[in-house]
């Protein structure tokens, strides 16, 4: 396995916070931190493993080209709804979702649909809910946050379309594929 630059940032942050903990609280503080981290890791690993596999399996059902065809400028409310749904179902981190946003943009999706997509992916993404929020925050909290956030990506898309029409704020031309 290759160790990337970003990994060293995480190692550095962990070491720095550990050092701060040692300075302020001494060895007992560091011990408590290590124990908490171990407990958290054991708690989330079974769910994290399942979540990653679900993400991979969902990818096998997503047909990117067909999705892009349905999200153009004149797709109306339905396009925003579809974009939200697609964002909600898109698994993986930003390294997986932004290439898809870019592909949708090139394929003719408008700013409103793209913003609905990103907002849905980050705010109500099922993958993130399953992998991170359920294990850490519990089902009650996760469901409350999910349901109150459900209409918000469409709202963001509507605001974006309005801003594009009513103000000089425009996004750049989509690059040719």
């Amino acid at each position: 396995m290759k160790i990337k630059k970003a990994d060293w940032v995480f190692v550095g942050v962990a070491l720095a916070s550990g050092a701060a903990c040692w300075t302020l609280l001494g060895p007992s503080g560091v011990r408590a931190g290590l124990r908490d981290a171990g407990d958290l890791l054991l708690m989330i690993l079974p769910q994290l493993g399942a979540g990653l596999l679900i993400g991979g399996l969902v990818q096998q059902f997503v047909d990117r080209e067909r999705v892009a065809a349905m999200l153009g400028q004149n797709s109306g409310f339905r396009g925003l709804g579809l974009a939200s749904m697609a964002g909600m179902l898109t698994p993986g981190g930003p390294f997986a979702s932004f290439p898809l946003v870019y592909a949708l943009w090139v394929a003719g999706a408008d700013a409103g649909a793209l913003i609905a997509f990103i907002t849905a992916w980050s705010l109500i993404g099922i993958n993130r809910l399953v992998i991170w929020e359920l294990p850490f925050m519990g089902a009650d909290f996760a469901l409350l946050r999910f349901f109150v956030s459900l209409p918000l990506p469409i709202l963001a898309g509507l605001i974006a379309r309005w801003l594009v029409q009513a103000t000089p704020l425009k996004i750049r031309e989509a690059p040719r594929s």
Binding site: D7, F10, V11, S17, G18, A20, C21, L24, A32, G33
Partner: peptide, 15 residues
């Protein structure tokens, strides 16, 4: 990243 992030979060929690 995950073990390191959990360590950082747990240390920060202490202080």
């Amino acid at each position: 990243r995950l073990p390191m992030a959990l360590l950082a979060a747990s240390f920060l929690t202490q202080i």
